Amino acid sequence: MSASAPTPLYRQLLPARFDDLPRTLRVLHERAGFHRYRGKVEVERGHGVFSRLFAWATRLPVAGRGTIDVEIDSGPHHERWARIIKGRAMRSRLWVDDGLLCERLGLVTFGFRLDVEPLGAGNSIVWRVAKVRALGAPLPPRWFDEVIAREYERDRRYRFDVFATMPWIGRLVHYRGWLDVE
C-alpha cells in the first residue's frame, strides 16, 4: 500500500489489531479495486412469514448448498460486494461512519461494531450490530443482538459464518462457507 493510498475500511476500524489477523483476512480486506473470489457455501433460511419478509427486504441468499462467487469492488471510501449464490446476487455497499462498518442490504442499513477475537490458532473478525435503520427509520439494536458474523482462517482459506435470528421471528438466515483468496 503506497503512502498516498487511502486506508482500507477494515484497517480504519481495527487499526491496532489488523496486522494480528490471519493472512487470508488481511489479503481480502486490503486489496483495492475489483476482485472475484470463489468458494463453497451452505445456507439455511427461516420459514415464518416475517422471516421471509425480512429476508426479502435485505436480499438474503436462498437456502441450499453449492458454489459462491464473491465480487468486491474496493474504492477509496466504500466497497461494493456481490455474493452470488445459485445465480442470485446479494448486493451490498459498505462504508465507515462514526467508528462503525455500515452496510446497506436492500431496504436496511446496519452499523456493525467490529472486533478481533481469538478463534482456534488465530484471530477472527466478529461483526455485531450497533445500529439499524429500515427505510430510514431507526430500529432498536437489541432486536439484533443475535445477528453475528465471523470471519476467520482455517486450512489457509478465508472462512465466514453469518448467523441472524430475531426475537418473535426466529432464524432469518445462517450461511457459512469458505473462499479461495489467493
Results as ranks from 00 to 15, higher is better:
residue 111 G to H: 10
residue 67 T to E: 15
residue 102 C to D: 05
residue 145 D to L: 04
residue 117 E to I: 14
residue 176 R to V: 09
residue 171 R to A: 00
residue 8 P to C: 08
residue 133 R to L: 05
residue 5 A to E: 14
residue 21 L to M: 02
residue 39 G to V: 07
residue 27 V to L: 08
residue 108 V to R: 07
residue 97 D to M: 03
residue 79 E to W: 03
residue 16 A to Y: 04
residue 30 E to K: 00
residue 100 L to A: 10
residue 1 M to H: 11
residue 48 G to I: 13
residue 140 P to A: 13
residue 166 M to V: 12
residue 154 R to P: 00
residue 158 Y to H: 10
residue 125 I to P: 00
residue 84 I to A: 06
residue 52 R to C: 05
residue 25 L to S: 04
residue 41 V to H: 03
residue 111 G to W: 08
residue 151 E to T: 04
residue 8 P to D: 08
residue 93 R to H: 13
residue 169 I to P: 00
residue 90 M to K: 03
residue 93 R to I: 10
residue 23 R to N: 06
residue 36 R to H: 10
residue 124 S to F: 00
residue 182 E to F: 00
residue 158 Y to C: 00
residue 53 L to H: 09
residue 162 V to C: 09
residue 168 W to Q: 11
residue 149 A to F: 03
residue 105 L to V: 01
residue 8 P to Q: 09
residue 125 I to H: 01
residue 143 W to N: 14
residue 122 G to P: 00
residue 73 D to A: 13
residue 122 G to Q: 12
residue 35 H to Q: 13
residue 138 P to M: 06
residue 12 Q to P: 10
residue 17 R to F: 05
residue 139 L to Y: 08
residue 128 R to P: 01
residue 18 F to H: 12
residue 153 E to A: 09
residue 148 I to G: 02
residue 128 R to Q: 07
residue 25 L to N: 03
residue 46 G to M: 12
residue 86 K to L: 04
residue 135 L to K: 10
residue 34 F to E: 13
residue 40 K to H: 15
residue 7 T to L: 07
residue 105 L to Y: 02
residue 141 P to Q: 07
residue 159 R to Y: 00
residue 110 F to M: 11
residue 125 I to C: 02
residue 11 R to L: 10
residue 39 G to D: 12
residue 49 V to L: 15
residue 95 W to C: 09
residue 68 I to D: 03
residue 70 V to A: 11
residue 161 D to I: 07
residue 149 A to S: 13
residue 36 R to I: 07
residue 60 L to M: 15
residue 119 L to H: 15
residue 94 L to P: 00
residue 79 E to N: 11
residue 90 M to T: 13
residue 92 S to H: 04
residue 147 V to W: 02
residue 34 F to P: 00
residue 169 I to C: 04
residue 136 G to W: 04
residue 150 R to T: 13
residue 80 R to V: 10
residue 29 H to Y: 05
residue 12 Q to V: 09
residue 171 R to L: 12
residue 101 L to R: 02
residue 6 P to A: 11
residue 180 D to W: 02
residue 22 P to L: 04
residue 136 G to Q: 10
residue 152 Y to H: 07
residue 100 L to N: 06
residue 16 A to K: 14
residue 177 G to V: 09
residue 5 A to C: 05
residue 90 M to G: 04
residue 44 E to M: 09
residue 105 L to W: 00
residue 145 D to M: 03
residue 91 R to G: 08
residue 26 R to G: 08
residue 115 D to A: 15
residue 181 V to L: 04
